[in-house]
Computed example of a mutant assay.
Amino acid sequence: MKKGLFIFCFTMFIAFASKAQDNTSLPAKYQEKMTSIFNKIPEVTSSAATSLIDFAKSMLGKPYVYASSNPDRGFDCSGFVSYVFSNFGFKVPRSSREFAGAGTPVKLADAKVGDVLIFTGTNPRVRKIGHVGIIYSIENGEIKFIHSTSGKAHGVTVTEFNDYYKSRFMKAVSIVE
């Protein structure tokens, strides 16, 4: 019953919102407020990605443990990514190499928060997949991603998509549609 009521209310809100977007008939003092509200509507549609990132953030500092997807022990890169997505019911691969065939490929310029970045291993000249992470934020065109690294941080951390990672970048895929 509650679910049905929620769906009804949400449907009514969307119907109202689509008709009310032309707010020129409103008094001037309300036009700005309505525009502000409608500009926030896309934020609601990205709530799945927001929840996913919030959950991933709760794992910050967990140690890097090779071949592990156990939050009590720690994670390797693909163990972390698969654990995060599996928590939300997404069926994703367990190994970084298999992520190349998962989800929907996206151009890096079109990638969004919650998409998976796929990299080579630590040597960028060896063009074989060996690392994955989840886009954490995109601000002013600058991407940060959350991942479990065996490098300096040696665990779950947020890293800038810097020149080193750009040299290792292979592709991006969208799991959350």
Rank of each mutant, 00 (worst) to 15 (best):
Y64M: 13
A56F: 06
Q31L: 00
M59D: 05
A28K: 15
S69P: 01
T50E: 14
T35N: 11
F38T: 10
S68D: 07
T50A: 10
S51D: 08
A49M: 02
Q31N: 02
K29R: 10
T50F: 02
A48P: 12
S51H: 07
S36M: 06
I41N: 09
S25F: 13
A28Q: 15
K40G: 11
G61I: 06
N70Q: 07
S46I: 02
E43K: 08
M34F: 07
N70M: 05
Y30T: 08
I37A: 15
Y64W: 15
S36V: 02
S47C: 12
A67Q: 12
Y30Q: 11
T35P: 00
F55E: 01
P63G: 02
P42L: 07
N39Y: 12
V65P: 04
Y30D: 13
P63L: 04
K33M: 01
E32M: 00
M34T: 07
A28G: 10
T45D: 04
S58N: 08
K40W: 08
A56I: 01
E32S: 04
V65D: 13
P71T: 13
L60I: 11
S58P: 00
G61M: 05
S51Y: 07
S47Y: 15
I37T: 11
S47I: 15
G61C: 07
I37L: 08
Y30L: 10
P42M: 08
S25Y: 14
E32Y: 00
A48L: 12
A48G: 10
E43Y: 06
S46E: 03
P27E: 14
D54Q: 12
M59R: 10
M34N: 06
A67R: 11
S46N: 03
S58F: 02
N70Y: 08
N70V: 05
S25D: 10
A56N: 07
T45R: 01
L60W: 05
I37H: 12
T45G: 03
E43F: 03
N70F: 05
S47D: 14
T45A: 04
L60V: 07
E32C: 00
Y30H: 09
A28E: 15
S68Q: 15
E32T: 07
N39G: 14
Y66C: 12
K57L: 12
L60T: 07
